[in-house]
């Protein structure tokens, strides 16, 4: 029984389902992250209070653990898929040309954009979560001045450049990822698939422009 269960969990369709669910959950995380960023543009104190409440809430550890599990599931399954798919055709073609009617730049580069996003996330955590600690006091309560850190970080134009570059990579990844996730979860349909593709592209553009806008806002607004 357990062997059968193991086989089911390892089946090619289950891997698709893992990728789809984890990918969509990570997309919802992006929306949450975006909403948090919006506070940056509203008010420095509000942004700092939000960040403070987020990290001091004991549930943050549970949330972070879930996020890490989802993220690792996505990364590990992605790497496994890539290795298995590579070995599924050990004798490579002498000549292979794409039809031009199917695969796209985004769909054929998922593992590369994925690895770049992974590298970006590590850098992003080092830059901010584990970055310099500036203190401030809001309404008598001492807390981290994350707003200052962000503002100072994006004073450097090079940082803006590679952050926007990373967002473009993320945009390419999700432009295939979103509809692909729905297809993997069995929601592909003769009519709706085209809508799902459009939704994926809108989400990709929203990701690139939305997140990039914050870096430029931080620059225009100036540092401390």
């Amino acid at each position: 029984m357990s062997q059968k269960c193991c086989k089911t969990m390892n089946s090619s369709i289950m891997k698709k389902i893992f990728m789809g669910i984890s990918g969509l959950l990570l997309c919802t995380f992006l929306i949450g992250h975006f909403a948090g960023n919006v506070l940056y543009t509203v008010n420095a104190d509000l942004f700092n209070i939000y960040a403070h409440k987020l990290v001091t809430n004991p549930l943050i550890y549970v949330a972070e653990a879930i996020l890490i599990i989802i993220f690792l599931a996505h990364v590990v399954t992605g790497i496994r898929l890539t290795i298995q798919n590579y070995t599924a055709r050990s004798h490579k073609y002498y000549l292979k040309v794409k039809t031009g009617r199917g695969s796209t730049f985004a769909s054929s580069t998922m593992i590369y954009t994925g690895v770049l996003i992974l590298a970006f996330i590590v850098a992003h955590l080092i830059n901010f979560k584990y970055g310099a600690y500036y203190g401030t006091t809001v309404d008598g309560e001492p807390m981290r001045d994350l707003h200052k850190l962000v503002a100072q970080f994006f004073m450097i134009k090079l940082n803006i450049g590679w952050y926007i570059g990373a967002m473009v990579v993320l945009g390419i990844h999700v432009s295939h990822g979103v509809w692909s996730a729905f297809q993997s979860l069995g929601l592909g349909h003769i009519t709706y698939t085209s809508y799902l593709k459009v939704i994926g592209k809108i989400f990709a553009v929203f990701t690139v422009i939305g997140f990039s806008a914050f870096t430029l806002y931080a620059l225009i607004q100036g540092g401390y």
């Binding site: 090619s12 289950m14 389902i17 055709r89 039809t99 009617r101 769909s107 295939h176």
Partner: peptide, 29 residues
């Protein structure tokens, strides 16, 4: 190998089989 929704299969199929069949198989699974 594993499907990554590249759609080259649908594009090359001489009988025009659609990948909506793959979505249906995923649903069935």
């Amino acid at each position: 190998g594993n499907c990554t929704n590249e759609q080259e299969c649908e594009a090359t199929c001489p009988k025009g089989i659609k990948i909506t069949n793959i979505a249906r198989m995923n649903r069935e699974f």
